[in-house]
């Protein structure tokens, strides 16, 4: 990837952890990050949101809103199909947030 690109990625708000790899956070500029990675890897790729409740990857292609959802300009957390189908999703969502706050 090269030193310069790595620095650009860090400046755009990407976080690097040797053991876990790269992580984008709420503050990360996903548009810039996408552009840099596209040039570096020379291929298209997409950001996959995480499920806020169970932390699994969200399968966007199964979502009814995939054609209107702009992952790059929306909040990084979403809900996976399994959690979305639960009866108590809203309660679980609130509980997960409270856990993270405490």
């Amino acid at each position: 990837m090269g030193r310069d690109r790595f620095i650009s990625l860090m400046k755009a708000g990407l976080i690097y952890d040797r053991s876990k790899g790269f992580k984008a956070e709420a503050d990360s500029n996903l548009v810039i990050i996408t552009s840099i990675l596209k040039t570096a890897l020379d291929e298209d790729f997409e950001f996959v949101p995480k499920c806020f409740v169970c932390n699994s990857s969200v399968e966007c292609y199964l979502c009814a809103y995939c054609h209107i959802c702009d992952v790059k300009s929306s909040t990084p957390d979403c809900l996976c199909n399994k959690c979305m189908d639960r009866e108590d999703t809203f309660i679980m969502y609130g509980r997960t947030l409270m856990k993270k706050i405490s």
């Binding site: 709420a26 503050d27 949101p49 979502c63 009814a64 809103y65 209107i68 959802c69 702009d70 992952v71 300009s73 929306s74 909040t75 990084p76 957390d77 979403c78 809900l79 979305m84 999703t89 809203f90 969502y93």
Partner: peptide, 17 residues
């Protein structure tokens, strides 16, 4: 600075429901 982004559609749906 605290940056806010648009809420993802599934979460909007969750709230409306």
């Amino acid at each position: 600075v605290f940056r806010f982004r648009r809420v993802v559609p599934r979460l909007v749906e969750l709230y409306i429901e």
